[in-house]
Nucleic acid binder design. Sequence first.
DNA 1: TTATATGCAAATCGTTTGCCCCCAA
DNA 2: TTGGGGGCAAACGATTTGCATATAA
Lengths: 166, 166
Amino acid sequence: VKLTRRQIDERVTLLRQYCKTRGLPLTHQRQVIYSALAASETHPTPEEICSQVRREMPSVSLATVYKNIKFFLDLGLLREVTALHERQLLDANLEPHHHFVCQRCKTVMDIRERDLEPVRWTISPPPGIRISGYKVEVTGLCIRCARKTKTSRSSRRRKSNGNAKL
Amino acid sequence: VKLTRRQIDERVTLLRQYCKTRGLPLTHQRQVIYSALAASETHPTPEEICSQVRREMPSVSLATVYKNIKFFLDLGLLREVTALHERQLLDANLEPHHHFVCQRCKTVMDIRERDLEPVRWTISPPPGIRISGYKVEVTGLCIRCARKTKTSRSSRRRKSNGNAKL
DNA sequence: TTATATGCAAATCGTTTGCCCCCAA
DNA sequence: TTGGGGGCAAACGATTTGCATATAA
């Protein structure tokens, strides 16, 4: 999905508005980092974005790129391919199954395969690729976090992945 | 999904067979690590498995646990919750969409939301949780890797996530 | 016996933090 | 002017590696 120059500028304008309404400063590097992200056609790593940004602004530090990425994520102006990249989580369940991931505490719970309709294409799948399986990731809030959210006060980014039940 | 002692032993027997047919030694620690995994009801980290194993065998090193986890993954006796935990991958596409992940080179490609049927439950979703969305992860081999596989010779674990097209 | 695994410690990699200076508002 | 941001280097946490020793087959 390649964006035109104009579409990228629109994204930066969106960023500008977000910053303005929250009274946050919009620095030059922040703009350049965000347009590098918006212009990316793949799923870049922070390092890759940093190299990209350095073509235009050789002095940016990797730390600044990381800080801004977190900033954009918090604002919802950017997403992660997976929220579970922090550490390796193992799954000894060899049966095909799906997952529920709590977006607050990151707890993962299994969903039996038969509890969801099989995934189906509405068009023919892209030619050339070989498909071996489909895994659905249901996101939301687990019971514990859903309860806490009513009154708020968080259990964000728990280290343990606990025993919470669906 | 809590397994009975008997089911765990069956899993270890499976491991024993895999090792035997490949002529690989089945050490005491390998067995204990594998049963700790099979007995896990959650999605443990390597650290957590290590602590668990140490209750029975206090001398195991974390390095051994890591090496064995890789061993089990290679044999297909264990899975990861996500194959993309190694580094943070960013996704500037704010539209809801799905992903194709090449299990060999780890390239991620977007699938437009409308190209897959919406995910649906066959039973009513677990009460108490709050669901905010569904993301499908289609796994398989990308064009490049699918081609290479016929003749073999790999591009495993490429560092870049490339520009490969669906 | 012989190949492979283990344990330990050092190395590496990705990411975060502290601190001092600078800039956008 | 002033509070958040930027750059740098040190700190960190997770994972990997090198190597000498121990172990399964």
